[in-house]
Amino acid sequence: MTVHRLTARSVSKPWGITDVPSAFPSLSGDRVGEVWFTDAPMNASTLLVKYLFTSEKLSVQVHPNDADAQAVGLPLGKSECWYVVEAEADARLGIGLLASMDAAAVRSAALDGSLQDLLDWKPVSAGSFFYIPAGTIHAIGAGLQIVEIQQSADVTYRLYDYGRPRELHLERGLAVAQLGPYCMPERTVSANEHECLVEPGNAPFSVDSIVEADGDTFTLADDVSWFVPIKGHGLIDGHRWTAGECWVSEGHCDIAAEGPMHALVARVSPPGRD
């Protein structure tokens, strides 16, 4: 058994914020858009955990699945999920299209700037959770702090970027996109009980929400688990953990809460998933 606290690395983004919470490293006045948890052991490199901080909308984009990524020489596609930690009153997530469209119509909307109006912009609040399978057209709105758990693949096809001077990837993106509404469950995570948020076997990874009271303990017993504490502090096999961190455990691992605790726990799904 081993436990490893990952290193938090801030990444500058034009849509980020300058007043990043004190738990995370700042960038000397630059906008922090993402905080990546890096230096994972090799056997824990298949998932990537991030915090996102937004003051503007992110680009409209889509990711390929494993098969589509491997067809163009990439090792993995990218499915991901979002847990909303904080949200301003009018915060939105754009997930899927309002109606089914053909590729030519989506391409035209991307070029004339109307694509953002064709997304299903869903109102969200703290505790909102969405699983975003590869192929889902999506965008993250302003005024949000989000934990993102994703396959560790650097592959994003940008369809629209509000006039920012960045490359678009229309042909590749439209080739892998689901050109219709989002059909996965929308949910608000309970503050009082354990929940399975992403089922093992139905996705490249699973995610559980863990809630414990002061003095409670729970055990991780999988080959590799990612422990992402959202609230609280305590001990993980004798090491101190606190909210805003990310830990990787291998094998049996006991986690104790010193005060009320809420955490996400992610695991890679076994081969042969649907």
Rank of each mutant, 00 (worst) to 15 (best):
Y182W: 03
V155N: 06
T136Q: 12
D120T: 15
V155P: 12
I140L: 13
L98C: 11
G127C: 00
P165N: 11
L98G: 14
P165C: 10
A105N: 10
V176Y: 02
E171A: 12
R187H: 00
G163R: 13
V124L: 01
I137E: 05
A175Q: 11
C183F: 00
A99Q: 15
S108H: 13
E148T: 06
L98K: 15
F130Q: 01
Y162V: 10
E171N: 13
L118S: 05
V124C: 01
A142N: 09
P185H: 09
L168N: 02
L159Y: 07
I132Y: 01
G173I: 04
L168I: 12
G173N: 07
S128A: 14
G141I: 10
V124K: 00
R187E: 02
P165R: 12
Q145Y: 00
Q150P: 10
E186F: 00
G163N: 10
T156R: 01
Y182A: 03
H138Q: 15
E167F: 04
A104I: 02
A105W: 03
G143L: 02
V106D: 07
L144Q: 01
F130W: 07
D112S: 08
A105S: 15
Q151S: 03
G141W: 06
G135I: 08
L159V: 14
G141V: 08
S100M: 08
L118I: 01
S125R: 13
A153N: 08
L174N: 03
K122T: 14
L170W: 04
S108D: 15
I132A: 11
P185G: 03
I140H: 05
H138T: 07
A104V: 08
S108K: 15
G143N: 04
G143H: 02
A104Q: 14
I146E: 02
D112G: 03
D161V: 13
D112F: 07
G173A: 09
R158N: 12
G143D: 01
A142G: 11
D112M: 07
A104L: 14
D117H: 13
A134C: 08
L159M: 13
A99S: 15
R164T: 13
G135Y: 09
I140Y: 06
A139R: 03
C183M: 13
G143M: 05
G127T: 00
G113L: 13
V106E: 04
H169G: 07
Q151W: 00
H138C: 12
Q151G: 07
R107M: 09
V176L: 10
E148I: 07
Q151P: 11
L111K: 15
A134M: 03
G163L: 11
R166M: 09
T136S: 09
I137R: 12
A153V: 01
S114R: 14
G141H: 05
A142P: 15
V124D: 00
